[in-house]
Amino acid sequence: MKILFDSVMPYADAFFSSIGECKSFESGVLGDIDLAEADVLLTRSTTKVDKQLLLKAEHAKFIGTATAGINHFDVKAIEQHGAHWTSAAGCNARAVAEYVLASLLYLAINDEIELAGKSCAIVGVGEVGRQVASIVNALGMSIVLYDPPRAELESTFTSASFDEVISADFISLHAPLINDGKYPTRHMFNDIVLNKMNANQYLISASRGELIDTNALLARFRLKSKSAASGVSQCTAPQLVMDCWEDEPTISTELMTHCRLATAHIAGHSLEGKARGTSILYDKLCEFLAVDNVLNLRDFLPIYEMPENLMAHIRAFDMDTLSLATLNNIVKCFYDIENDDSFFRQHMAKSDQITPIRKNYPIRREFDAVSVRLQNPVAKQQLSALGFKVL
């Protein structure tokens, strides 16, 4: 059995060499001969699996993506090809939730607002949305859950109305891109919706950039600038945290200038998140082939090298204050969102392409990569709820 996998999938050779003959390929450089010989094709989002590719991969019977999203898969074409397809849904949920937490803390500290008591609408309550809801709840925020398709499938789940969503203080997007049907999500934040929002609200884009109509959003910012210059009442637009952009990998650099935080679609790019994608595909391929899955992700992840200042911040958090500032210091030891924002703006000053940043993104670890020991029961409960491994 010949297994062809994307070279950026961590530990892929170690996982899949126990099953068959492995060969890696560079994203965007997929040879015809390699495709023709592949029984198993494992990709990431940079490889579009469509009719044209499948014509070259005539022997492929198992096609998987080590990502949560499948917008790069022509599912109908794959099924007509007679191949089994799968994804690594949920693999980066923890990393995305930690990105949202870093965003919330940054905004709270810089705008001098208390998060407790503020409302946060979560659009799309799959694995990522559930993880974000857990974090939002741990911060003492009120949660607005919006997912009509899930409400139709699950009698125990009730979706909020969209009016409740667009009246929330914070709105965090975690829905898939759906172009048609009963509940389309493409441009769900269009001119009509954006017109109902204001500058005291925060919109976090961490799922698919096409959920927001970029042109409509830019029109709001342009109108805001024009009204400010004329001295008349300002037309307002929400505060933006943008990780996912419309028309990637080419993005609107004009929109970037209006963002409070801007990053290169890397919210889910933790080492654990990427490696978990590999591990999930390994488990699913083993199931498909009816062989034992004897390997586990924890066998490969390196020991976390704890920053020197992390324990000092942990000790401060173990005191009575439990301030957002101290929590932010802890989070920044794992993920400094301001660094990503700064690097992104420097790069995009010379280009409108985000691919190089994503391809060369440095290793980032998730919160539970290290165990922390606390005495304060309130601190233990809060850090545990935020995803830390607490002893």
Results as ranks from 00 to 15, higher is better:
H174M: 09
G140S: 06
N137D: 12
L203T: 02
I166F: 08
A151T: 15
A168R: 00
G129V: 07
D180G: 09
V132E: 02
L203Q: 10
D191K: 02
V165F: 08
A175Y: 05
S172Q: 00
V193Q: 09
P184T: 14
A160C: 12
H174P: 12
T214Y: 12
D213E: 04
V144N: 07
L139E: 07
D213S: 05
S155R: 13
S167Q: 15
P148G: 02
R150I: 11
P148Y: 15
A199P: 04
A199R: 14
A160Q: 14
A133H: 06
I204G: 09
I178P: 00
K196T: 10
E154M: 05
F162W: 09
F189C: 06
T156S: 13
G209I: 13
G140P: 05
R130K: 14
L145T: 01
S207C: 14
I178F: 01
Y202S: 01
D191T: 07
D213H: 09
A199T: 15
P176D: 13
L153V: 14
G140F: 00
A206M: 14
G129R: 03
R130V: 12
L194K: 01
E210A: 15
T185L: 15
N137R: 12
V128Y: 00
I192Y: 07
I178S: 13
F162K: 07
S155M: 10
T158Q: 15
D147S: 01
F189E: 03
V144H: 04
V128K: 05
T214G: 00
R150C: 10
P176C: 12
L153N: 13
F170R: 00
N195T: 08
Y202H: 01
N179F: 04
L153W: 05
M197K: 05
I204E: 06
L217H: 03
R186K: 14
S172F: 03
N200H: 00
D147I: 01
H174Y: 10
I135C: 11
P149G: 09
